[in-house]
């Protein structure tokens, strides 16, 4: 555990809590892609199957359970509790275009051809692209509420901090997880365009981020 890794996990947690609180307080999930949230719930489910097989640390177990619980709570709020506010019209990204290549890739590239390893690889690849329905929705509607952009900012920050963590671990422990690093870098690139808009529009004090 290093400072980048811890800060990365904290910003991931902050992102998820921001989104959950936004939906809960406004009693609405307008502008939120339910598809992205479903994909994130699938990411956590397939990655954290090792909760049942190996014990790493109390921190590891608690964070995994928290991430799973919060992601399922978010999906519940969007699709059950506040489903009348869910904007399915604009959440029209075709998820099969992500799932099919990701499933294919995880069968081609993995550390071992075992169910656990293939599912872990699937979750890593899927996480890299899971935000795309949300970014697509923002592009389609042309705007995002500032609280939604704060959520995306912390999610992107988490990815960037994980890269710093890998650089640190490579130099201090010689640790290098090829699958995680490559897809983590790809994932972070998706946020670059958004980061630019966030800094130029939202931070400069506008309540909504509109696309040019």
């Amino acid at each position: 555990m290093n400072v980048f890794r811890l800060a990365g996990d904290v910003s991931h947690l902050v992102a998820i809590i921001i989104l959950l609180l936004k939906i809960w307080r406004s009693r609405s999930c307008a502008g939120i892609s339910g598809k992205s949230q479903l994909l994130f719930a699938l990411v956590f489910t397939t990655r954290y199957l090792d909760l049942f097989t190996v014990y790493i640390s109390a921190y590891n177990t608690i964070m995994k359970v928290v991430f799973l619980a919060l992601s399922y709570a978010t999906v519940y709020l969007i699709y059950m509790r506040f489903r009348n506010t869910y904007d399915s019209e604009n959440d029209s990204f075709r998820v099969e275009f992500l799932l099919v290549p990701v499933i294919g890739l995880s069968f081609l590239e993995h550390y071992a051809f075992t169910p656990m390893e293939v599912l872990w690889t699937f979750s890593i690849f899927l996480e890299a692209v899971a935000i795309m329905p949300q970014l697509f929705m923002i592009t389609k509607t042309g705007e995002a509420e500032s609280i939604t952009t704060h959520y995306l900012f912390f999610l992107g920050l988490y990815r960037a901090l994980y890269i710093a963590n890998w650089v640190w671990r490579y130099h201090t422990e010689g640790f290098f997880d090829q699958i995680a690093v490559v897809s983590g870098v790809v994932q972070t690139i998706f946020y670059c365009d958004f980061f630019y808009l966030y800094v130029t529009k939202v931070v400069q004090g506008r309540s909504k981020m509109s696309l040019p």
């Binding site: 995994k64 991430f67 872990w120 995680a180």
Partner: peptide, 10 residues
């Protein structure tokens, strides 16, 4: 990480 090592990252 190499095969068999535990995945300690989230």
């Amino acid at each position: 990480c190499p095969i068999g090592t535990t995945k300690d990252e989230l």
